[in-house]
């Protein structure tokens, strides 16, 4: 196994696994009998993975959500869908590689897939702008949502962005307008729409492809109104207090399920999605096909009314005492 970038809490696991690999190599090359010892260590490693991953704090989940080895949209698309064809461009200004869109097949249904795309490595990340879209990315997404609606194809979105890009060109070309306009289109899109947060759900940049009939989150993904760093730099005047902000804002999948803001959490095996992308892809596929089955039987009016109802319920308030 190549050396991975390991988070602090992953290190004991990875060290143990390395040891097991070494023993396996030794056992293969010599005649020393190590099978019992290997089996014992493998059990130990499994327990360690379970222990570590069942007690992660919020900041550790933020780190997992941003793990450089974490599967990105294209990694899931190739595993979940068949016959994928990528479609480009907003027909107005340019193509934005930070958002990928295309048609793919999920079992017997053709669907429109829209996802943020981060890059792997420096060069790729520069090309993908670290998964931070410009307005043209959101406008491409809107164009293709509308195309999906015209042909009666459901939309699946995969959310994974630190946020919409805060740059000169992005502002000049109307980042806010692009996002707002997507919200309006998604609200009344006459086809089933399922969104899955696979990594980082970074504020408005995430929501811009995320108004859906069902919203799911992978177990170690996050979704928040502002990045923990951004929140910390405002509240504590110190972005290195991000871990505190992550705790206070309750950004994890299980938090948001408890708060009733998402429909469900998709399991990741202990170790995380970056270690087991195939299993995670299977879990996502299962949720998607189940959801599409339920949603595709609804008449359009009911579909849209229920989608709105989902959001009307979000909010907590009380009456001020006089």
């Amino acid at each position: 196994m190549p050396d991975r970038l390991a988070l602090d809490f992953e290190k004991p696991i990875i060290e143990l696994e390395k040891k097991i690999d070494e023993m396996k190599a030794l056992s293969g090359s010599s005649k020393i009998e190590l099978d019992d010892e290997i089996a014992r260590l493998e059990k130990k490693a499994e327990k360690l993975r379970k222990d570590v991953f069942s007690s992660l704090n919020r900041w550790q989940r933020v780190q997992l959500a941003r793990h450089p080895d974490r599967p990105y949209s294209l990694d899931y698309i190739s595993r979940i869908f068949t016959d994928f064809i990528e479609l480009h461009g907003d027909r107005a200004f340019s193509d934005d590689p930070a958002i990928i869109c295309g048609l793919g097949r999920l079992e017997e249904t053709s669907v429109m897939i829209i996802g943020h795309q981060k890059g792997r490595g420096t060069k790729d990340n520069l090309y993908r702008n670290f998964g931070m879209p410009h307005p043209e990315g959101y406008r491409k997404a809107k164009r293709l949502m509308e195309l999906a609606a015209r042909f009666g194809r459901p939309v699946i979105s995969l959310i994974d962005t630190p946020g919409a890009y805060p740059g000169l060109g992005a502002e000049e070309r109307g980042q806010a307008e692009a996002i707002a306009s997507n919200l309006m289109v998604m609200a009344n899109l006459p086809v089933p729409f399922i969104a899955v947060v696979i990594g980082e759900g970074g504020s408005g940049g995430a929501l811009a492809i995320g108004i859906a009939d069902r919203v799911f989150m992978l177990e170690n993904s996050i979704y928040s109104v502002i990045s923990p760093e951004g929140c910390a730099s405002i509240l504590y005047r110190d972005s290195s207090q991000a871990h505190k902000a992550a705790e206070a804002m309750k950004v994890t999948a299980s938090d948001l399920q408890k708060l009733g803001l998402i429909n469900g959490v998709i399991k990741e095996p202990p170790g995380g999605a970056h270690r087991y992308p195939d299993i995670c892809a299977d879990n996502i596929r299962e949720i998607l096909s189940e959801g599409l089955n339920e949603l595709s039987s609804l008449p359009v009016d009911e579909l849209i009314a229920k989608r709105h109802e989902r959001y009307y319920k979000m909010g907590k308030w009380e009456q001020a005492k006089e």
Binding site: L183, M184, V225, I234, L235, V251, Y311
Partner: peptide, 19 residues
């Protein structure tokens, strides 16, 4: 930000009504 994702979802909620 003190209302976390509840706040973000107000963007979705108002957009649905305005739609």
């Amino acid at each position: 930000m003190q209302e976390g994702l509840f706040s973000l979802m107000q963007m979705a909620k108002t957009s649905c009504e305005l739609a």
